[in-house]
Amino acid sequence: MTVKHEGARVERRTKIQINNPSSFRNVKLFFLGFFLLSFASLLFLELDLAKVAARLPKMGNVLSRLAILSFDKLDILLKATAESVSVTVLSVFYSIVPSMILGAFMASNIIGSRAARAVISWICSIIRAIPTTVWVLIILACLGFGPAAGIIGMCFHTLAFLARAFQQSFENVPEGNIEALKSGGASRVRIFFQAILPGALSNMISWCAIRFESNFSESTILGMVGAGGVGYTVMACMNGYEYGRAGTAVLVILLLSFGLEALSIRLKKNI
């Protein structure tokens, strides 16, 4: 009996394991932790799903009224759209050059001092951590209303984001290009303009395209907190029960957003 027992025990111990123990465990742990936390979150939130279910017809109502597009006062809508687009364009445009400078100062293949890079990196992280909308609110509080506030506000976040993105692009330029110039005795500035910048250019354009998409999205949201633009049109129209016009505005947002997405996909492929 004991022999059989031992035999069985030995059998079980030698069951051949086919998984990679460490990485498999990590993935399992991650999913477990994530789902547990999320379940806890769901329970923690006071989700009144019953109320939502009860009011579902009302949402259908709202959606259907939004769908009945009204082309009244189209000029206001177009003006608001132009404003949002302008804010998007300018916030990216004016961030490009400062970001290049900041990004250059953070890149490990341009600046040697780890401490200096770390400091700038931290500052950028903190700026980036504050959502764009919050930045705009700050600027609005200090400089008053208007699209200019929106532009400046968005510039802060966009700058920090692009600086980090450009840093990556700069660091990804192959060593070879840089070494060739270094061995010829070129100054750091020259190396930057002749080797690093051209090498990172296509990458940088991609990042700008990504920013265009995000910033347009942000600029529409800004309207809802008071900086003008299409978002404001949506809010004002819905508050005034002019659902048709609001629907048209949402459609405009959707179409432009689609367009920007398609543009950035095209840019990414071409380059």
Binding site: V62, L66, M238, F258
Partner: peptide, 18 residues
Amino acid sequence: NVPTLVWAFILFMSFGIG
């Protein structure tokens, strides 16, 4: 492509705050 806050606003108009 519709920004999160726009969805939030639409939902807010349908269901109220929360």
